Amino acid sequence: MLRRRLEFLETPSSFFYRDGDPVRAEEADDIFRQGVLRVARATGEAERAWLREALAELDQPSSERR
């Protein structure tokens, strides 16, 4: 499940699209969309970092885990 979630989060996407292309925070037309996209980016980065750490720990033999 964790690997599937990480794979999903690593697939490019956006809340907003223009002409079929994802809109990045720096390209958003207004301050509110910029905010949504910046918060989503930060949340995604934190979640991906945690998932990588968790998977690395789970990949260790059980005798080496914390």
Results as ranks from 00 to 15, higher is better:
M1R: 13
M1P: 12
M1S: 15
L2Q: 11
R5A: 09
R5F: 04
R5V: 10
L6D: 05
L6T: 07
F8E: 14
F8V: 13
F8L: 14
L9K: 00
L9V: 02
L9W: 05
E10V: 01
E10M: 06
E10C: 01
P12K: 06
S13F: 10
S13T: 04
S13E: 05
S14L: 02
S14Q: 01
S14D: 05
F15H: 12
F15Q: 10
F15N: 13
F15K: 08
F16Y: 07
Y17A: 03
Y17M: 01
R18P: 04
D19Q: 10
D19P: 05
G20S: 01
G20E: 07
D21W: 11
D21A: 13
P22N: 03
P22W: 01
P22R: 03
V23Y: 02
R24S: 10
R24K: 04
R24H: 10
R24L: 12
R24M: 07
A25R: 00
E26G: 07
E26S: 05
E26F: 00
E27P: 00
A28V: 03
A28N: 02
D29Q: 08
D29I: 00
D29R: 10
D30M: 00
D30V: 03
I31S: 14
F32N: 12
Q34S: 09
Q34N: 11
G35H: 00
G35A: 08
G35P: 13
G35C: 01
V36A: 11
L37P: 15
L37N: 08
R38H: 03
V39Y: 02
V39H: 04
V39A: 11
V39I: 13
V39W: 00
R41H: 12
R41P: 09
A42I: 06
A42G: 04
A42F: 08
T43S: 14
T43K: 07
T43R: 05
G44P: 02
G44F: 07
G44T: 05
E45T: 07
E45S: 03
A46K: 04
A46T: 08
A46Y: 00
A46H: 08
E47D: 07
E47V: 14
E47C: 06
E47T: 14
A49W: 14
A49M: 07
A49E: 15
A49F: 14
W50L: 11
W50E: 12
W50C: 11
L51W: 02
L51D: 04
R52N: 06
R52K: 14
R52Q: 13
A54Y: 08
A54E: 14
L55I: 13
L55C: 07
L55F: 09
L55N: 03
A56I: 10
A56H: 12
E57R: 14
E57Q: 12
E57M: 13
D59G: 12
P61D: 06
S63P: 14
S63N: 12
E64W: 10
E64Y: 09
R65L: 04
R66V: 15
R66G: 15
R66F: 15
